[in-house]
Simulated scan of single mutants.
Amino acid sequence: MINFFRKIRQNLLMENKTGKYFKYAIGEIVLVMIGILLALQVSNWNQDRKDRISERKLLDNIHRDFVHNKVDFDSLKAIHYRALEGLEKLVTLFPLGNDSLKYAAYKKYNLQMEGMTYYPYSGSIESVVNSNALQLIQDEELQKYLVSWKDVFLDYKEDEKVYYDYLTDFLWPYYRDAFDTTGKDTAMNLATRNTIKFQNMIVSRRNYLRGVIKAIEEEPIENHINEIVRLTKPKVE
């Protein structure tokens, strides 16, 4: 093809057709430029296609992780709400005295005292945010949620930590010292549950758990989880 164009130029010069030569040369330059632009367009299209494939893989990984995160967070909420309900009812029973009905209710509500800390899957987001891969994600709203996720999660964990630090540092040590955990010394355990200190410890636990519930309801963590799930969901075409 190059030899073909070269022969045309040589013939035009040999025939002394300078005007036609310049017109031809300009036309050839235009054709070359068009070819370059088409090649660039094809290259850009191909790169964009590769980027969209990479983006979809990233979104699929994040979506999978945050579907799990949503399930875990829903379980966390249910456990904390159930525990708070039990604590609220326990507090209304004080003082227990020697009332057998109150003790039966105490045992029932005490079974609701489960706990759960939140450990979401964050590896997929961290790998995106800490690399240039974030640029592959076109949705600017999603980018904001991904970038702010770590701070939102850590803010929630601070409130959760306050509650579990109370359990670990104060309540459980108190239980070990004040109760016969074998259950053999029922008189001792009964006397402990009728002390003001025990009642105050339960009230404090309730108050700390209220702080966790407040964090769940008022901080943006749940909204972040739901929005990341929504924005990474594959679009139905």
Rank of each mutant, 00 (worst) to 15 (best):
L190H: 13
T186C: 02
M116W: 10
A78T: 09
V203E: 05
T195D: 05
N98M: 05
F198I: 02
K144W: 03
I228S: 00
S43K: 08
A178Q: 12
R210P: 03
V71P: 13
I34T: 09
I213C: 05
G115C: 07
T168I: 00
P95I: 02
L111G: 12
K233A: 12
V42Q: 09
P220S: 07
L38D: 04
S54G: 08
E160V: 01
I221C: 00
L96A: 02
F22C: 09
T168D: 01
D165G: 01
E126L: 13
I228K: 00
I26R: 06
K157D: 01
L111N: 13
A178S: 12
E158D: 03
K77Y: 06
Y163D: 01
K7Q: 09
T181K: 10
I8M: 07
E88H: 14
I53L: 15
N98K: 07
L87P: 09
L13A: 08
K57W: 12
K150V: 03
R56I: 10
Y164L: 03
M116K: 15
R82M: 13
K77T: 07
M113N: 13
A78D: 12
S100V: 05
W45T: 14
T168K: 01
Y106L: 08
G211M: 04
D65P: 11
S148P: 00
A105D: 12
V152C: 01
M14T: 06
L134S: 06
D155T: 03
I213Y: 01
S131K: 10
I125L: 12
L96V: 04
G123P: 09
F5N: 08
R56D: 15
P95F: 03
E237T: 11
M113S: 10
Y109C: 03
S100I: 04
T232S: 10
G211Q: 04
T232M: 10
T186S: 11
T195E: 03
I62W: 00
Q10M: 04
Y106E: 11
R56V: 11
N61A: 15
E126Q: 14
Q135L: 11
A187P: 11
I36F: 14
I202S: 04
Y174R: 02
F5A: 06
K157V: 06
N207K: 03
